[in-house]
């Protein structure tokens, strides 16, 4: 009897696993269908060094294969272009100035997100165990670092959404957590010349 239960559990576990990876695949396929996406975002950050959470708002433009434009409008105005491992600040004239290249923090997470949202999960699977929950119309992907080194810094990343990505939550081991919520998510339509230039795309 116990053997039967064990066997059943094994089968069930395999089933769950298979179901999860199909969900993950379906979610990624769905996300990959939207090559360019615009959304409004609200980011809220808690950190042990902070007495109250930091909240910022703005617009996000995501282009598969090129990166994203992170445009903060509140409480200050700033546009960052996150392309590959590079972070650049874009001024009002559309001139870009490299803030940093190839660092392990923001760039690594943004790179992982970029490849996930492009439907390429190899990079992410190398770095994270991915746990998919829910259904295609309401899903959560939980990323736990597989690398011990990263695990000592980063606790987990959670992505949630439906047809589009609707939220990102980044939890650090030092107690910091960053919650990003998206609204008015939509296919972007044609890009402006300034946007293309900022993302290093051909005009």
């Amino acid at each position: 009897m116990r053997r039967l239960i064990a066997l059943f559990l094994c089968w069930f576990a395999v089933g769950v696993h298979a179901q999860q990876s199909t969900l993950l695949q379906n979610v990624l396929n769905e996300l990959g269908n939207h090559a360019t996406v615009r959304a409004a975002f609200t980011q809220s950050r808690e950190n042990p060094a902070l007495a109250q959470p930091q909240v910022s708002q703005g617009q996000l433009l995501f282009v598969v294969g090129h990166g994203m434009l992170w445009q903060v409008t509140e409480p200050y105005r700033e546009t960052l272009a996150l392309t590959g491992g590079r972070t650049a600040r874009i001024d009002e004239q559309g001139q870009s100035q490299t803030v940093r290249g190839g660092d392990r923090g923001v760039a690594q997470v943004s790179q992982m997100l970029q490849s996930m949202l492009s439907g390429k999960q190899d990079d992410a699977l190398r770095q994270f165990d991915i746990d998919a929950q829910g259904s295609l119309s309401h899903w959560t992907l939980r990323f736990t670092p597989r690398q011990e080194r990263m695990g000592r810094v980063l606790r987990r990343i959670e992505l949630g959404g439906d047809q589009f990505l609707q939220s990102i939550r980044v939890e650090m081991q030092n107690g910091e957590s960053t919650q990003i919520r998206f609204s008015e998510t939509r296919d972007a339509g044609p890009l402006t010349v300034l946007e293309k230039r900022a993302l290093g795309m051909p005009p």
Binding site: R45, Q54, P75, S110, E176
Partner: peptide, 18 residues
């Protein structure tokens, strides 16, 4: 200071914010 504290995704790895 505001830019630093509101960096996208995470506020840096390595050196602590404080």
């Amino acid at each position: 200071l505001a830019r630093r504290l509101n960096e996208p995704f995470l506020a840096g790895v390595g050196i602590k914010l404080q």
